[in-house]
Design a protein around this nucleic acid. Structure first.
Lengths: 251, 251
DNA sequence: CGCTTGACGTTATCATCGATAAATCGCCGA
DNA sequence: TCGGCGATTTATCGATGATAACGTCAAGCG
């Protein structure tokens, strides 16, 4: 938003940045990763090569900006999925977002899962980390609703693994023989594995499995206390007392 | 086999080939893909750079040979899994092979799924294509046994997607916090999705009989922990630990 | 034995790529 | 007007993938 009043040439730095990102994204999508050289990007954007280094630090910075921009664009283009729905539906929406982004940006998806990773496993792209956090939050919502039957981290990992694998499998196939319903099949499998209830992910409307507030969960656990052989008698007694406090306070 | 009698220098072409492949594989595994340059490989192998091009055509040919060799080595090191067993067990063995190879050769796995692909989706590495065919055959065996409830191609795709996704998810995590049992969870989910019958692939015995209500309740309670204001921080921490014990033992 | 032939090693070199230093330009405020 | 500073341009560096050109050696053959 800098100097739009200038009639001349100075394209306001942010405009140059955006143009570079657009050009790089276009080259990446159209001609693959090896077509994205600093020279070709600079030439196509009408700037000199050093400009890239001043604006992005190095070529990796440019690619990170491309990933950031591509992901943000894709998310923005989707309707926001109001969060007051069924938590499972929210999770499904996140799943579809993951799959859709990968199929729409295969080259970028490959790049993200290979080159652009810090040694500790965290993604070097801010937006990707943010997306992972959103997934975590949505899984937590499902857990709070009492519909998760595996630990949250395992659910997060399984969803991420299934989504990543589906995208790789699909973009590795020629577009003609590609059957994108593989994503739905995988989603069914994920739901059947991590969710409670029989009709897992679909628009069942009403589930036989109860919404299960914390109090309900505490009641369930207290009923199962005698079977929990991993506790010593004293531990079991204290555990039961605490469950009682939860029941009294939350119920 | 060639000229071992010669006391002098000629190391029999195949020996040079094998040494180059070994050196390249070592560099790839130890220092990452960008450490595998034609010069570094040639230097470490004691040959000149053009030798690589005479033996492998180009750098990609060398990398394909590395992938081929790495996969073959891993397969050979495993016991052959006699094929007269339960077809589902054969499938499980193939699954474990896929996962194990990816975890043992993360850099190679990344390379295979990014750089070394022909435009029509087929892998450029012969051994990988062969592995895919083995998977197809094993799925066909399961289908012949009447235990498949989805089309064969969908089953093949789902298994491949799940395996690929699990490997990527695991190798993207630091080795310390990595939980490799994610592979087992994913295998359960795949079996539940593509196989008939309730007790799917495992020697379930006790697990699948009940949906593990205590574990679900414990997961739900743990997700709601931050909202349980009736606990002191220390109590909450201990309570969370105990809930974790319930999840681990019952789930 | 002498000649040819072809495979291999060696050296030198090319084109390209990522990245940067140095010089040059242009605008803005004092 | 002029100093100063940031942005642009030019030129270049080191590394990399890839190859041409030349020399060497052993095998085949008259």
């Amino acid at each position: 938003m800098g100097n739009m009043s200038d009639p001349g040439v100075p394209p306001s730095r942010d405009a140059v940045r955006a143009r570079l990102v657009d050009v790089a994204a276009g080259l990446l999508a159209a001609q693959g990763p090896e077509a994205v050289t600093t020279r070709s990007v600079a030439l196509a954007a009408g700037v000199q090569a050093p400009t890239i280094y001043r604006l992005f630090g190095d070529k990796n910075g440019l690619l990170e900006a491309v990933a950031e921009n591509g992901f943000a664009n894709y998310v923005a283009q989707k309707h926001p999925v109001d969060a007051d729905d069924d938590p499972v539906e929210g999770l499904h929406a996140g799943w579809n977002l993951h799959i859709g982004f990968g199929l729409a940006n295969p080259a970028l998806f490959r790049l993200i899962h290979t080159a652009m990773r810090t040694p500790d496993g965290r993604s070097a792209v801010e937006a990707i980390e943010a997306g992972a956090n959103v997934l975590r939050q949505r899984v937590t919502r499902v857990a709070r609703a009492g519909r998760l039957r595996v630990p949250e981290q395992r659910a997060v990992d399984l969803i991420h693994a299934a989504g990543t694998g589906v995208v790789f499998t699909l973009i590795d196939q020629p577009a003609e023989t590609r059957d994108e319903s593989l994503a739905d099949l995988a989603w069914e499998g994920v739901c059947a594995t991590i969710l409670t209830g029989e009709h897992t992910g679909e628009r069942t409307g009403e589930h036989a499995a109860a919404p299960a507030a914390p109090a309900t969960a505490a009641v369930t656990l207290r009923a199962a206390l005698p079977d929990l052989v991993m506790f010593t008698p004293h531990e079991r007694a204290l555990f039961g007392d605490w469950l009682g406090r939860v029941v009294d306070a939350e119920g």
